[in-house]
Protein backbone atom coordinates (compact mmCIF):
# COMPACT_ATOMS: atom_id res chain seq x y z
CA UNK A 1 0.00 0.00 0.00
CA UNK A 2 2.79 2.36 0.77
CA UNK A 3 5.96 2.84 -1.16
CA UNK A 4 7.49 5.50 1.00
CA UNK A 5 10.57 4.91 3.02
CA UNK A 6 10.49 5.71 6.67
CA UNK A 7 13.49 7.99 6.39
CA UNK A 8 12.73 11.62 7.01
CA UNK A 9 12.93 13.18 3.57
CA UNK A 10 13.66 16.68 4.78
CA UNK A 11 16.64 17.79 6.72
CA UNK A 12 16.08 19.04 10.22
CA UNK A 13 18.64 21.78 9.79
CA UNK A 14 17.43 25.29 10.52
CA UNK A 15 17.19 27.76 7.68
CA UNK A 16 20.36 29.54 6.65
CA UNK A 17 20.54 33.32 6.48
CA UNK A 18 20.57 32.99 2.68
CA UNK A 19 17.21 31.26 2.90
CA UNK A 20 15.89 34.04 5.10
CA UNK A 21 17.02 36.48 2.41
CA UNK A 22 15.23 34.41 -0.25
CA UNK A 23 12.03 34.49 1.77
CA UNK A 24 12.24 38.25 2.32
CA UNK A 25 13.02 38.75 -1.36
CA UNK A 26 10.02 36.65 -2.33
CA UNK A 27 7.62 38.64 -0.14
CA UNK A 28 8.92 41.99 -1.45
CA UNK A 29 8.84 40.69 -5.02
CA UNK A 30 5.20 39.63 -4.69
CA UNK A 31 4.26 42.97 -3.15
CA UNK A 32 6.00 44.80 -6.00
CA UNK A 33 4.23 42.64 -8.61
CA UNK A 34 0.88 43.30 -6.98
CA UNK A 35 1.67 46.98 -6.88
CA UNK A 36 2.49 47.01 -10.59
CA UNK A 37 -0.79 45.26 -11.29
CA UNK A 38 -2.74 47.87 -9.37
CA UNK A 39 -1.82 51.03 -11.19
CA UNK A 40 -4.97 52.80 -10.11
CA UNK A 41 -3.85 52.35 -6.50
CA UNK A 42 -0.63 54.16 -7.28
CA UNK A 43 -2.41 56.95 -9.10
CA UNK A 44 -4.91 57.52 -6.33
CA UNK A 45 -2.13 57.45 -3.75
CA UNK A 46 -0.50 60.26 -5.71
CA UNK A 47 -3.59 62.28 -6.55
CA UNK A 48 -4.77 62.49 -2.94
CA UNK A 49 -1.86 64.61 -1.60
CA UNK A 50 -1.74 66.62 -4.81
CA UNK A 51 -5.36 67.66 -4.34
CA UNK A 52 -4.44 68.89 -0.88
CA UNK A 53 -1.39 70.65 -2.21
CA UNK A 54 -2.87 72.30 -5.28
CA UNK A 55 -6.34 73.12 -3.99
CA UNK A 56 -6.46 73.10 -0.21
CA UNK A 57 -3.08 74.71 0.34
CA UNK A 58 -3.62 77.29 -2.36
CA UNK A 59 -6.94 78.25 -0.81
CA UNK A 60 -5.60 78.42 2.72
CA UNK A 61 -2.39 80.18 1.89
CA UNK A 62 -3.86 83.59 2.72
CA UNK A 63 -6.02 82.43 5.62
CA UNK A 64 -3.37 80.75 7.72
CA UNK A 65 -0.34 82.75 8.66
CA UNK A 66 2.55 80.59 9.78
CA UNK A 67 5.08 82.20 12.04
CA UNK A 68 8.71 81.21 11.99
CA UNK A 69 8.95 77.92 13.84
CA UNK A 70 11.71 75.31 13.72
CA UNK A 71 13.00 73.85 11.47
CA UNK A 72 12.10 76.82 9.25
CA UNK A 73 14.37 79.84 9.45
CA UNK A 74 12.25 82.15 7.39
CA UNK A 75 8.59 82.58 6.68
CA UNK A 76 7.44 79.71 4.54
CA UNK A 77 4.54 79.33 2.19
CA UNK A 78 1.67 77.20 3.42
CA UNK A 79 2.39 74.71 0.64
CA UNK A 80 5.85 74.22 2.06
CA UNK A 81 4.45 73.84 5.56
CA UNK A 82 1.98 71.09 4.71
CA UNK A 83 4.28 69.07 2.44
CA UNK A 84 5.74 66.92 5.27
CA UNK A 85 2.20 66.30 6.47
CA UNK A 86 1.20 65.17 3.01
CA UNK A 87 4.23 62.90 2.78
CA UNK A 88 3.17 61.31 6.04
CA UNK A 89 -0.39 61.12 4.74
CA UNK A 90 0.75 59.04 1.78
CA UNK A 91 2.36 56.65 4.22
CA UNK A 92 -0.67 56.69 6.51
CA UNK A 93 -2.97 55.66 3.67
CA UNK A 94 -0.46 53.12 2.50
CA UNK A 95 -0.14 51.58 5.95
CA UNK A 96 -3.90 51.36 6.32
CA UNK A 97 -4.27 50.07 2.78
CA UNK A 98 -1.84 47.28 3.45
CA UNK A 99 -3.82 46.49 6.56
CA UNK A 100 -6.87 46.34 4.32
CA UNK A 101 -5.01 44.02 2.01
CA UNK A 102 -4.11 41.84 4.97
CA UNK A 103 -7.74 41.58 5.99
CA UNK A 104 -8.52 40.81 2.37
CA UNK A 105 -5.67 38.33 2.26
CA UNK A 106 -6.93 36.66 5.36
CA UNK A 107 -10.43 36.37 3.99
CA UNK A 108 -9.13 35.10 0.68
CA UNK A 109 -6.66 32.78 2.32
CA UNK A 110 -3.45 34.41 1.08
CA UNK A 111 -2.53 35.36 4.59
CA UNK A 112 -2.84 31.72 5.55
CA UNK A 113 -0.52 30.76 2.73
CA UNK A 114 2.00 33.14 4.23
CA UNK A 115 1.47 31.86 7.74
CA UNK A 116 2.00 28.18 6.89
CA UNK A 117 5.50 29.05 5.77
CA UNK A 118 7.98 27.37 8.11
CA UNK A 119 9.82 30.62 8.78
CA UNK A 120 9.17 32.20 12.17
CA UNK A 121 6.04 34.23 12.24
CA UNK A 122 7.72 37.44 13.41
CA UNK A 123 9.97 37.19 10.38
CA UNK A 124 7.07 36.67 7.96
CA UNK A 125 5.15 39.62 9.37
CA UNK A 126 8.34 41.70 9.36
CA UNK A 127 8.96 40.84 5.71
CA UNK A 128 5.41 41.80 4.83
CA UNK A 129 5.84 45.07 6.71
CA UNK A 130 9.17 45.79 5.03
CA UNK A 131 7.61 45.26 1.60
CA UNK A 132 4.80 47.69 2.44
CA UNK A 133 7.24 50.33 3.68
CA UNK A 134 9.29 50.06 0.49
CA UNK A 135 6.17 50.64 -1.62
CA UNK A 136 5.12 53.64 0.50
CA UNK A 137 8.56 55.27 0.19
CA UNK A 138 8.36 54.89 -3.55
CA UNK A 139 5.07 56.77 -3.53
CA UNK A 140 6.45 59.57 -1.36
CA UNK A 141 9.32 60.18 -3.76
CA UNK A 142 6.93 60.22 -6.70
CA UNK A 143 5.03 62.96 -4.86
CA UNK A 144 8.25 64.86 -4.15
CA UNK A 145 9.12 64.86 -7.83
CA UNK A 146 5.85 66.61 -8.64
CA UNK A 147 6.23 68.94 -5.65
CA UNK A 148 9.66 69.89 -6.96
CA UNK A 149 8.09 71.32 -10.09
CA UNK A 150 5.77 73.28 -7.80
CA UNK A 151 8.92 74.74 -6.29
CA UNK A 152 8.63 72.87 -3.05
CA UNK A 153 12.04 71.48 -2.24
CA UNK A 154 14.37 71.10 0.70
CA UNK A 155 16.98 73.81 1.36
CA UNK A 156 19.64 71.58 -0.16
CA UNK A 157 19.37 68.46 -2.28
CA UNK A 158 20.63 66.45 0.70
CA UNK A 159 17.20 66.86 2.20
CA UNK A 160 15.99 64.17 -0.19
CA UNK A 161 18.52 61.78 1.32
CA UNK A 162 18.14 62.70 4.98
CA UNK A 163 14.38 62.29 4.78
CA UNK A 164 14.74 58.63 3.77
CA UNK A 165 15.43 57.16 7.24
CA UNK A 166 12.58 59.24 8.63
CA UNK A 167 10.26 57.85 5.96
CA UNK A 168 11.43 54.33 6.76
CA UNK A 169 10.66 54.71 10.45
CA UNK A 170 7.32 56.41 9.84
CA UNK A 171 6.41 53.71 7.32
CA UNK A 172 7.30 51.04 9.82
CA UNK A 173 5.26 52.67 12.58
CA UNK A 174 2.18 53.11 10.39
CA UNK A 175 2.57 49.67 8.83
CA UNK A 176 2.77 48.06 12.26
CA UNK A 177 -0.30 50.01 13.33
CA UNK A 178 -2.11 48.82 10.21
CA UNK A 179 -1.06 45.25 10.89
CA UNK A 180 -2.30 45.47 14.45
CA UNK A 181 -5.61 46.86 13.23
CA UNK A 182 -5.86 44.15 10.57
CA UNK A 183 -5.77 41.53 13.30
CA UNK A 184 -8.61 43.32 15.07
CA UNK A 185 -10.84 43.83 12.07
CA UNK A 186 -12.70 40.75 11.11
CA UNK A 187 -14.51 41.87 8.03
CA UNK A 188 -13.60 43.98 5.05
CA UNK A 189 -16.53 46.36 5.54
CA UNK A 190 -14.97 47.59 8.73
CA UNK A 191 -12.35 49.42 6.74
CA UNK A 192 -14.76 52.34 6.45
CA UNK A 193 -14.54 52.42 10.22
CA UNK A 194 -10.78 52.57 10.00
CA UNK A 195 -11.12 55.63 7.76
CA UNK A 196 -13.42 57.36 10.22
CA UNK A 197 -11.84 56.34 13.46
CA UNK A 198 -8.17 56.08 12.57
CA UNK A 199 -7.15 57.95 9.44
CA UNK A 200 -9.20 61.16 9.82
CA UNK A 201 -8.62 61.72 13.55
CA UNK A 202 -4.92 60.95 13.21
CA UNK A 203 -4.51 63.28 10.29
CA UNK A 204 -6.53 66.22 11.59
CA UNK A 205 -5.39 66.02 15.20
CA UNK A 206 -1.79 66.46 14.19
CA UNK A 207 0.65 69.10 13.10
CA UNK A 208 0.17 68.14 9.45
CA UNK A 209 -2.10 71.03 8.51
CA UNK A 210 -1.43 73.62 11.23
CA UNK A 211 1.31 74.17 13.79
CA UNK A 212 0.43 72.99 17.26
CA UNK A 213 0.76 76.43 18.89
CA UNK A 214 -2.27 77.44 16.89
CA UNK A 215 -4.16 74.45 18.19
CA UNK A 216 -3.15 75.37 21.72
CA UNK A 217 -4.78 78.77 21.31
CA UNK A 218 -8.01 77.07 20.34
CA UNK A 219 -8.14 74.26 22.89
CA UNK A 220 -5.57 72.97 25.36
CA UNK A 221 -7.23 69.56 25.35
CA UNK A 222 -6.97 69.25 21.62
CA UNK A 223 -3.38 70.38 21.90
CA UNK A 224 -2.74 67.61 24.38
CA UNK A 225 -4.34 65.05 22.07
CA UNK A 226 -2.29 66.31 19.14
CA UNK A 227 0.96 66.17 21.04
CA UNK A 228 0.59 62.50 21.93
CA UNK A 229 -0.71 61.58 18.47
CA UNK A 230 1.93 59.36 16.85
CA UNK A 231 1.09 60.95 13.53
CA UNK A 232 2.20 64.38 14.83
CA UNK A 233 5.60 62.91 15.61
CA UNK A 234 5.69 61.23 12.22
CA UNK A 235 5.06 64.57 10.52
CA UNK A 236 7.60 66.43 12.66
CA UNK A 237 10.31 63.81 12.14
CA UNK A 238 9.81 64.06 8.38
CA UNK A 239 9.63 67.87 8.51
CA UNK A 240 12.93 68.15 10.36
CA UNK A 241 14.67 65.42 8.34
CA UNK A 242 13.68 67.19 5.12
CA UNK A 243 15.65 70.16 6.48
CA UNK A 244 18.56 67.92 7.55
CA UNK A 245 17.68 68.20 11.20
CA UNK A 246 16.59 65.69 13.77
CA UNK A 247 13.51 66.13 15.93
CA UNK A 248 14.78 64.14 18.90
CA UNK A 249 11.58 64.06 20.93
CA UNK A 250 9.60 62.93 17.89
CA UNK A 251 12.22 60.30 17.13
CA UNK A 252 11.97 58.95 20.66
CA UNK A 253 8.17 58.97 20.55
CA UNK A 254 8.13 57.21 17.19
CA UNK A 255 10.54 54.52 18.34
CA UNK A 256 8.32 53.89 21.34
CA UNK A 257 5.13 53.77 19.28
CA UNK A 258 6.74 51.55 16.65
CA UNK A 259 7.89 49.00 19.20
CA UNK A 260 4.50 49.07 20.87
CA UNK A 261 2.60 48.48 17.62
CA UNK A 262 5.06 45.86 16.42
CA UNK A 263 4.83 44.00 19.69
CA UNK A 264 1.05 44.14 19.51
CA UNK A 265 0.91 42.99 15.88
CA UNK A 266 3.26 40.06 16.39
CA UNK A 267 1.38 39.09 19.50
CA UNK A 268 -1.94 39.34 17.71
CA UNK A 269 -0.72 36.96 15.03
CA UNK A 270 0.96 34.66 17.53
CA UNK A 271 -0.88 31.36 17.30
CA UNK A 272 -0.77 30.78 21.04
CA UNK A 273 -1.93 34.15 22.31
CA UNK A 274 -3.44 35.58 19.19
CA UNK A 275 -6.73 37.27 18.80
CA UNK A 276 -7.27 35.03 15.79
CA UNK A 277 -7.88 32.17 18.17
CA UNK A 278 -10.65 33.90 19.98
CA UNK A 279 -12.46 35.07 16.90
CA UNK A 280 -12.25 31.84 15.03
CA UNK A 281 -11.19 33.50 11.82
Amino acid sequence: MTTSSNADPLSARPFTSAQYAICLGGVVWREALRFLHQRERFVSALVRPLVWLFIFAAGFRSVLGISIIPPYETYVLYEVYITPGLMAMIQLFNGMQSSLSMVYDREMGNMRTLLVSPFPRWFLLGAKLFAGVAVSILQVYAYLVIAFFWEIEPPTKWGYVTVLPALALVGLMLGALGMLLSSLIKQLENFAGVMNFVIFPMFFASSALYPLWRVKEASPWLYYACSINPFTHAVELIRFAFYQKIAWDSLAALLAYTSLFLFGAIRAYDPAKGLLTRKGG
Partner: peptide
Protein backbone atom coordinates in the same frame (compact mmCIF):
# COMPACT_ATOMS: atom_id res chain seq x y z
CA UNK B 1 9.31 25.44 11.71
CA UNK B 2 10.15 21.75 11.47
CA UNK B 3 6.50 20.69 11.45
CA UNK B 4 5.46 23.12 8.71
CA UNK B 5 8.37 22.14 6.46
CA UNK B 6 6.93 18.64 6.33
CA UNK B 7 3.42 19.76 5.63
CA UNK B 8 1.67 20.76 2.40
CA UNK B 9 -1.65 22.56 2.73
CA UNK B 10 -4.51 23.20 0.32
CA UNK B 11 -7.00 25.59 1.86
CA UNK B 12 -10.67 25.57 1.14
CA UNK B 13 -10.61 29.17 -0.08
CA UNK B 14 -8.82 29.88 -3.32
CA UNK B 15 -5.41 31.17 -2.35
Amino acid sequence: GQALRRLGVVFQART
